[in-house]
Design a protein around this nucleic acid. Structure first.
Length: 164
DNA sequence: CTACTGATTGTTTCT
DNA sequence: AGAAACAATCAGTAG
């Protein structure tokens, strides 16, 4: 699908514009505690493409949650037991099911790691934000146009695009 | 070739 | 306060 490759001539990358049709999907959410947005089969979560269009390569991605950390390990084990499995969904389901079985004590180490990961993320975010402030401040200092702030920091790889 | 899709739950962030 | 978005993964799929 990808309507346009955000590689060289990407302007806004409006590939699939997140469909916000989920607003009225969960009408009876109150009943299901965690089943709030789990039904968007029609919309799914096809909105991640925007992040590629993100012009900030330094923006730290979200730290993996306890579940994800557990999944990382679980995936490895799962693949060993099911080397034939090729879909991510299988592991996802299996992992989710197993996760529910874990007790708080067992999840504790994962949560602890997640917390640590979040701290790191916090630092990265702080640095990232700080950098933005610097750019903003510097740009503002100039009495020229305030727009043109982004120019990148270290080296914005100019993806020349492979012309095969 | 390149980006999206599926499936899981938890954190994040906006409103 | 709650809902939508997004985090990794891997092979398949579509354009």
């Amino acid at each position: 699908m990808k309507e346009a490759k955000p590689r060289k001539g990407d302007a806004a990358v409006s590939k699939r514009e997140v469909k916000k049709a989920s607003k009225s999907e969960e009408k009876d959410v109150k009943k299901k505690k965690q089943l709030s947005v789990k039904d968007p089969k029609a919309t799914k979560r096809q909105r991640r493409k925007e992040r590629k269009a993100k012009k900030d390569p330094n923006q730290p991605k979200r730290p993996p949650t306890a579940f994800f950390i557990f999944l990382e390990e679980f995936r490895k084990t799962y693949k060993e037991q099911h080397p034939n499995v090729k879909g991510v969904a299988a592991v996802g389901k299996a992992g989710g099911d197993k996760w529910k079985e874990l007790s708080d004590a067992e999840k504790a180490p994962y949560i602890a790691k997640a917390s640590q990961r979040k701290i790191d993320y916090d630092k990265s975010m702080a640095a990232y934000k700080q950098k933005q402030d610097e750019e903003e401040g510097s740009a503002e200092e100039s009495d020229k146009s305030n727009l043109e702030i982004n120019d990148d920091e270290e080296s914005e790889e100019e993806e020349e695009d492979d012309d095969d």
